[in-house]
Amino acid sequence: MANQGHYGGGGGTRQGLYVMTANGTLLASSNALSADKALETIQQGLEAWKQTEPAARTLPKDFDLPRRRWEASYPQGGLVLRTANTDLGPDADRNRINRDHAWFTAEEARGWLGADPQPGDTHTVSRVIVDRLACFHLVDNVRGQTLPFAPAEVAASKLTTTVVSREGDAVTFEIEGRTEAETDGTWKLGKNDWTPTTKYPRGLTTTVLGSGTFDLAAKRFTAMEMVAVGERTGRTNLNGRPEGDVGPAAIGFVLQLAPDKPSARVPPAFIDVYGAEWVVDPR
């Protein structure tokens, strides 16, 4: 269907908006960051819809699509954070904000706290949590798709939690720490869809503060929010940083509990290189 759209059937991107019928008939398409242009495309599609025959509005009887998708690895009962990141500083483009989700299984998420958290306890957050955040989520994709870091490149990162209170089963805690990611561009994550063809030296350091509440009985987080503010250096092929924009420059992140609705089940951008055994590759 996308091959019928604004980019045609050639190689390269298929990004954009498409309005279509259930049988795959294209009604309108465009790739625009302008809300007015997007609205125009939608209205064109709705007008074209009025001209379609009923048969075009119905799925073919033999309809089938691959049912194995990354969403199948959604960590039910675990911790799902919705992230936002943007440039900071006096010249920052406030119009660029990126979103992603960070996934942790219930077992992994338990690594935010000790086994029997008591007020005043300080706990070093587990390595799997720190690595996942520093490698795959505290990255410079504000303006475009970027590359992750390898665990060895974020080894100096550390987060700690301090229990503020424990009321019944509710454990409230504060988060603090620092992430440090640095690479000379040597690729350390094996051969996959992200493997670059050249080196992109880059780094990203942040100071992290936040808080959360964990329900020991329900074994789930009822609140979680972190802010990470730091500095980026370097660029990658597709992250929208021109060669003259390699920093150091300020960047900020917010990570919050994701809402419980279907759209929050969209997988993390780097799910395929999380390297977690519970992630089932659908390909």
Partner: peptide, 22 residues
């Protein structure tokens, strides 16, 4: 879908001292 990044034009970003301000 995996695709390319945006084609936004060049911009300059002054290094900021904000990173230590959290």
């Amino acid at each position: 879908m995996t695709a390319c990044g945006d084609e936004a034009g060049p911009r300059t970003d002054a290094a900021s001292n904000e990173n230590g301000g959290l």
